[in-house]
């Protein structure tokens, strides 16, 4: 049952890391004296880190999985990034010229 034990540990690590990252994000928002820009960066970084943790520990994406799964996630991230980034770029440019 060592297999089971290792997997059990992995879920526990994932949950604990996620909780810590969530707490960190809440803390920078609630704490006094953190500039808005800094807080946003930290919240964003904690969010990305937590997504990575959960992909690794809960969804078991990693070195053991087939390459096509990782490719799929990276390709999805690329296209989502193009769509989100493109939208923000276009609409900000448009907004800036509407005044």
């Amino acid at each position: 049952m060592t297999d089971a034990r290792a997997e059990m540990r992995r879920y526990a690590i994932g949950a604990i890391l996620s909780a810590v990252l969530t707490l960190a994000a809440f803390w920078v928002v609630l704490a006094d004296g953190v500039a808005r820009g800094t807080a946003l960066w930290i919240v964003g970084a904690a969010g990305v880190a937590q997504i990575a943790v959960q992909l690794r520990c809960f969804l078991h994406i990693g070195s053991a999985s087939k390459r096509e799964d990782l490719h799929l996630i990276l390709f999805s991230a690329l296209l989502a990034g193009l769509m989100i980034g493109g939208t923000i770029w276009i609409m900000t440019s448009l907004h800036g010229r509407m005044h």
Partner: peptide
């Protein structure tokens, strides 16, 4: 093909760089 969609609305009013 996922990077060209704006050419359907060049005249919408966004800037020249876009």
């Amino acid at each position: 093909s996922f990077t060209v969609w704006l050419h359907h609305f060049f005249t919408m009013g966004q800037g020249a760089r876009v």
